[in-house]
Design a protein around this nucleic acid. Structure first.
Lengths: 236, 236
DNA sequence: ATTACCGTCTTGTTATATCAGGTTCAGGAA
DNA sequence: TTCCTGAACCTGATATAACAAGACGGTAAT
């Protein structure tokens, strides 16, 4: 027996999920039922379920059961990030809501100072927003914006996404430098985004510039990899 | 005690890794040592280590021990994907090697037929390449390319990346539509990319066009999220 | 009718135990 | 000196067991 039992079990369940034996949102058999069905111990069954959770195929809810995770991703277009994501999603029947977690004047960390080309005493506004799609957590955006802009558009920034707010107020963003990478949810992030520890998160790190080459905004959007993807078009 | 022991342990180890008590590549204490140190059972220690592995902080090697995973990512620029990645990496002292896993004429799946605007009987070339960075697995690229191009540049395509090969032969790519998303390694992918089951992978799905609006290439690069990131510049 | 409580089901945490199968290295055989 | 082998150590797989704690539904009390 070269392949472990827990792999055999999780692979079979995975197959059943993929062919639709278990529908998205449906409850999988309980640990006891699986123990009986496969004649294995609870540890083995739990390992198999952990495999599914780690693959993003299922999510366990204490006291309730293990459920098939629906696989639907929201597409965020990087080619036109200024488009109102909310409206874009509304077309697909998804409601986007915000929760302003923080909006305050701070002294930015050194790295931000550098990329925003600030002198060491300059304050900026720090904003942290939680993005909910149909009420479910989707992403957290944390960014630093030049003091004057933050001050001027404070009320709007608290209720809208940053790019559209700037755009709507005539702040023309010339270009955005960005890096996309993927990390894991640490204990803290896992709690905030309501995912199991270690689940993949997409980090979109950006710096936005206006007119000549003046950086005005720097931040990162940390999104749940099971609910977000990014699209782009590279032109020559 | 509201937070579980395994979380307490993994969080402490995580902290020690982050402050450098354990250096990248260094071996963590063995399970038995951790059992003694924290006065817990082996199951608890193993759960704690699983937490670290799931967070991409450590990797376990049977018979050898658990080691701190080095966190160094290769940056792939999407704004100029035609640049020779190999040369780009060479500047950073990283050697890029290839392994051609497959190169053959096939009838493409329906989705590819559509995006390459082919009629249902047209064959294309399918290529599958394994990308190694300093000998370590980094990514797998699978793509479908128009029959004539595949045939013409077969020998080069087997040893180089696709975009630079086309570019070097005067095939001018006009634009690339792409989507970036993040998935989990299933059992098969985990084996090919040498990561634990469920580790995050970045999927770069692309369609490349020439001249008027003629698609010539469609594929996806599946890369290890712990070793890859993508950078881009969005211009207005 | 509404609320409170309790039993049952379910997952989470943790301990103890055993065998399997890699890795490493020292010591002995060739 | 080289090679083989076995002890010691390490992680992986799996069983059994017990208690904790969240969810849920039914029943009894208000």
């Amino acid at each position: 027996m070269s392949t472990p039992l827990h792999i055999t079990i999780s692979e079979q369940l995975r197959h059943q999920i993929e062919v639709g034996d278990y529908q998205p949102g449906e409850k999988l058999p309980s640990e006891h039922q699986l123990m009986d069905a496969f004649s294995v111990s609870r540890i083995t069954v739990r390992q198999a379920i952990a495999n599914l959770v780690n693959q993003g195929l299922a999510n366990a809810q204490r006291g309730r059961g293990v459920f098939v995770t629906p696989q639907q991703k929201v597409d965020y277009s990087l080619s036109s990030p200024l488009v109102f994501l909310a409206e874009d999603l509304a077309h697909k029947g998804i409601t986007l809501t915000f929760k302003n977690l923080s909006f305050r004047k701070v002294l930015p960390p050194k790295a931000v100072q550098r990329s925003l080309q600030l002198d060491s005493k300059a304050s900026v506004y720090f904003q942290k927003k939680l993005l909910l799609m149909d009420g479910a957590t989707g992403a957290i955006d944390m960014s630093y914006i030049l003091l004057e802009l933050g001050q001027k558009y404070a009320s709007q920034l608290k209720h809208q996404m940053t790019f559209p707010t700037l755009e709507a107020n005539g702040v023309v963003i010339n270009h955005i430098d960005a890096v996309i990478e993927c990390t894991h949810a640490d204990y803290e992030m896992a709690g905030q985004l309501e995912v199991p520890l270690g689940q993949p998160l997409i980090v979109y790190r950006y710096t936005a510039y206006i007119e000549p080459d003046q950086p005005i905004l720097q931040g990162q959007t940390i999104s749940r990899a099971d609910r977000f993807c990014y699209s782009l078009s590279t032109k020559r």
